[in-house]
Amino acid sequence: MTVIFDIASWLFIAAGAFFTIVGALGILRMPDMYTRCHAAGILDPFGVSLILVGLMFQAGLTLVTVKLGFLIVLLMFTSPVSTHALGRAALHHGLKPLLADDKQTGDVSSKR
């Protein structure tokens, strides 16, 4: 039984680490601020939550698991709030989003 839990936990942690690095890479690669928000949105609740779920499998049925679950729910609630506040503040500040009006998709990324 512990072997199954170990394998499941390993899979979750590996997937979480993968998505975390992909999200950080996206934050570095994306051309403007609003698109970077999307990359942060894949890293923030998604990759980090997967790592925490992996840790839950490792902890077993203890208080630590409940704390990890609470941490996941907390991240799920707070991360959209800060992302929305960021986007709204940038929009009100007058930062124009980079838009692709039915042009070729390639020239958006080259305008960095």
């Binding site: 998505f19 996206g26 999307h38 990359a39 958006v108």
Partner: peptide, 18 residues
């Protein structure tokens, strides 16, 4: 999340923000 991951890992970065 999987869709956005594929976009980020694509070398051409095929985004069309709107």
């Amino acid at each position: 999340g999987w869709d956005v991951t594929k976009i980020i890992l694509n070398p051409r970065l095929p985004i069309s923000p709107r």
